[in-house]
Amino acid sequence: MSALSIVAEGPGKYIHWGVIQISVANAIIIAVMVLLFILALVVPFPTHDDQADEGHSR
C-alpha cells in the first residue's frame, strides 16, 4: 500500500512535442489500442471451416 502511494504521488513522465503534451502512460495505452486494432484486422479469425473436415460454409 505504501509503495503504491509513493508511485501515485510521484511526478508523471510527459512527452512534449510542440503543442502536444501527453503522459507516457496514456501514450502507451493509445499505442496498445492501435496495435490491438491492427491485429484485429490482420489476424485470421478461427472458423468452423478451419476445424471441420467437411467444408461447410458459415
Binding site: 491485429l39 484485429a40 484486422l41 489476424v43 472458423t47 458459415r58
Partner: peptide, 14 residues
C-alpha cells in the same frame, strides 16, 4: 446462431 461470412473477423468482436 449464424452470421454472414464476413463477420468472421476479430474486428467484429469488439
Amino acid at each position: 446462431d449464424r452470421q454472414p461470412v464476413y463477420v468472421a473477423s476479430w474486428i467484429y468482436v469488439f
